[in-house]
Design a protein around this nucleic acid. Structure first.
Lengths: 336, 336
DNA sequence: TTTATTTACGAAACCGGTTTCGTTCAGTTC
DNA sequence: GAACTGAACGAAACCGGTTTCGTAAATAAA
C-alpha cells in the first residue's frame, strides 16, 4: 500500500540496507547515492513506518503526561510547561486523562510497559489504595516523575509545592480577616497533597486556638451534584462557616455558585480562598483570593527532570524532590 | 530484557505461535494450554510489545485529537466528549496541542502518516494559508474529522455549529439591549468560523441599519499583550463602543480585564457577549452572557463519525457535515 | 478397517525498518 | 607484483509479535 524502503530499494536497484543507511545519512553511503535515494523518497512521498523503526530501536520518542483532567487551569498550564521542554528535545507529549478514576489510571500505566512511551510525568488521581501498576513502573526503573500530586510511598522524582505551608497560609489569611468558623473543602480519599493542605489548615487553626470542627472538614468526591449538596448542607446550618478554604479549583468555584444560590454575599457573609491558577480569578464576582501554584514552572521542572533521567541512564540520578513555592494572591473574596 | 513471547514459549516447551494464539484466546488452542500460558504470563508479568503487534497489524488503536490549546473550556469539554466515545471502542485518545501555530500543526499532521494513529479529529489553528499536510491526509483517504474549526476547502467530515447564525444572534441581542456601537473581536488571519461569526455580525448590523465601522472590527492575534493594547486603544477612543462581541472565549474575558482596568462598568457603560462554554461564566463579575456551543456533544459526535469511518471502510461514507445548534445564555453582562 | 474430519500445535513467513558483518574493488604501500 | 587499506554497498539476522499453512494424533463417519 504505502511506500516502503523495499520499494525504493527495488526501483533504485539498491539493497534495503543501503536505502536505510542513505536515509539516515550514514557515512557508509556515497553522496551521490544519498542524493538519489533522498530525491526518490521525496518524490514518492515516503514516510517511514513508525512501528517498524520503534520496534528495532526500542525507543518511542514519546513521553506521557497523565493527569486527572484538563479542564483545570493548573493542569492545562503545567502541560504547556511540559511541552515547552519536550519540544526542544524532539519528543512528543501524549496527554492521558484519568478523570480521577483510579481504574483508568492503572490501565493507562499498565499499558506504558509495552513501550508506548519512554517516560511518564504524572499527577495521580485520588481514590482508594493504590495498586501495583505505579509501583511496578517505579520498581522496574521506568523513568517516572510525579508533579503536584505524588505518591509518597513510591520512589521517584517529584516536583511539588509547599502544600502544608499553603494550607497554613490560606487558613491564617482567613483568620487574619476575622473568620472564626473556617471550613476546609477537601477531596475524597487519600490524596497526599490534600492531606497536607488539610494538615496545614488544622495546624493554623490550632496555632490560633480555634478548634476545627469535623463537620466543617468536607470530603468531596468527583460528582459535582454530590459536592453541591454536601456544601449546600453545610452552608444551610445555623452555625454555618464564615470562611472556606477550597483545596482545589473546582471546589472554590462551586462554593461561589452555592453562595449565589443561597444569597450569601461572599466576603461579607463568608470569605473564600481557593487553590487555583485560574486566569479568571480576578474577574470573578467577587475576585477570588487564591493560593496560586507555579503551574507552568512545575511542568517545566518536571519535564526537565524526566529528560535528565532519560539522557543519564547510567548516572543513577537520585530521586530528587523539588519543592516550588506557591503564592497567596489577595483579592476581594476575603476582604474584611 | 523484558519478558517476551519467546521466553514463555521456551520455558513452557511450546512454539511461539502457540503462545501467541493462547494469549489471544484463539480457538485453535486447548483450554489446558491456554491456562498454562496465561498463568505463566501472569507470573512473569508479561506485557506485549506494542510496536511489534502494531507493526504486523497495521493498526495503532490510537486516535489523535489536534487542538490549539486545552486551556479553553470548549476544547477541554470537547475532548471529554471524544474520550467518552473512544473508551467504548477500546481506543486511546492522544491529545496534540498546536498552540495556534500552523508550523506545529503541520509537523504533527505529517507525523501521522507514519501510522502513529488510525484517525484524526482536528480543530485547526488559525494562521496563513494552509499547506500540504492537511490536504495530503485527506487526499490519501486518511480518516479525518474536523470539529468546530474546519478547513472548508478540504474534503472531510465536519462537525460544526451555526456560526453565522450565532454571530447574528449575538449581535442582535446587543442591539436589542440598546447598543448602537458594537465592536467585533475576531482573531487574526483566516479562520473560517471567525469569518462566519463576523459575517453574522455584519449581517445583523446591516439588517438593523447600523453601519459597522472598520475600526470596531478587530483582528486579534495570539499574544495576550498585543490583544490587550489593541482593545485598550479601541476602548480609550472618545466614540468607544457600547457593545462587544467576543468571538472566542479569551477575547471576552480579556475584555473584562480591560473594562476593570479602565473603570468601565460592564452592562452599564458597555455590554459584552462572548462565545464560550465556560462553566464560570455565571460567576464572573458581572455574569457573562454567552453563545454556548454544545462542546461535549460536538466532541462525541465527531468521534462517532470518525469511528464510523474507521469501521466502515468499504461503505464509502460520504463526507458528512453536521451542524449542531449553539444557544444564547443571557446573563448580566448585557443587561439593559 | 479404512477414510474423512477435527483438534491442537509447530515451523516459518511476515510486518518494515535497523544493524551487523561480509564482500568487492579501487587505490595505496612496500 | 603482492599484501594492505578503506570506501561503498549487499546479504541476512534481528526486533517481537501475528498469521498462514502444514501435520500428527484423535475422533467420527463410512
Amino acid at each position: 500500500m504505502s511506500v516502503t524502503i523495499k520499494k525504493i530499494a527495488k526501483d533504485l536497484q539498491l539493497a534495503v540496507s543501503t536505502v536505510s543507511k542513505a536515509l539516515s545519512d550514514s557515512y557508509e553511503i556515497s553522496a551521490e547515492t544519498k542524493r538519489r535515494v533522498l530525491e526518490y523518497a521525496e518524490k514518492l512521498d515516503y514516510v517511514p513506518n513508525l512501528y517498524a523503526s520503534r520496534l528495532k530501536q526500542r525507543k518511542s520518542n514519546n513521553i506521557a503526561v497523565v493527569v486527572p483532567e484538563v479542564a483545570d487551569s493548573f493542569f492545562s498550564s503545567a502541560i504547556n510547561g511540559i511541552e515547552s521542554v519536550a519540544q526542544t528535545k524532539g519528543y512528543h507529549v501524549i496527554v492521558y486523562l484519568t478523570h480521577e478514576d483510579l481504574k483508568k489510571e492503572e490501565a493507562i500505566l499498565r499499558d506504558f510497559r509495552g513501550g508506548r512511551v519512554d517516560g511518564v510525568l504524572i499527577s495521580v488521581s485520588g481514590g482508594a489504595k493504590r495498586n501495583s501498576p505505579i509501583h511496578d513502573l517505579s520498581s522496574k526503573k521506568f523513568p517516572l516523575v510525579f508533579f503536584d500530586r505524588a505518591c509518597e510511598e513510591v520512589e521517584a522524582a517529584k516536583v511539588l509545592t509547599d502544600d502544608f505551608e499553603s494550607g497554613y497560609k490560606a487558613t491564617q489569611h482567613l483568620i487574619d480577616k476575622g473568620c472564626k468558623k473556617i471550613a476546609f473543602l477537601g477531596t475524597s480519599e487519600d490524596l497526599e497533597i490534600i492531606n497536607l493542605r488539610r494538615m496545614g489548615y488544622e495546624s493554623a487553626m490550632l496555632a490560633n486556638k480555634i478548634k476545627s470542627k469535623k463537620k466543617f472538614v468536607l470530603r468531596c468526591g468527583n460528582s459535582e451534584e454530590e459536592n453541591y449538596s454536601l456544601i449546600h448542607k453545610m452552608l444551610c446550618r445555623k452555625d454555618r462557616p464564615d470562611g472556606i478554604v477550597g483545596s482545589i479549583e473546582k471546589l472554590a468555584t462551586l462554593s461561589y455558585t452555592l453562595c449565589y444560590d443561597l444569597k450569601l454575599k461572599i466576603s461579607r457573609d463568608i470569605k473564600i480562598i481557593g487553590f487555583s491558577s485560574l486566569p479568571f480569578a480576578s474577574i470573578l464576582n467577587p475576585s477570588l483570593t487564591t493560593i496560586t501554584q507555579p503551574a507552568f514552572e512545575m511542568g517545566r521542572t518536571a519535564a526537565t527532570l524526566l529528560f535528565n533521567i532519560l539522557e543519564n541512564k547510567k548516572g543513577e540520578v537520585p530521586n530528587q524532590r523539588i519543592i516550588l513555592p506557591s503564592s497567596l494572591m489577595e483579592r476581594s473574596s476575603t476582604k474584611k
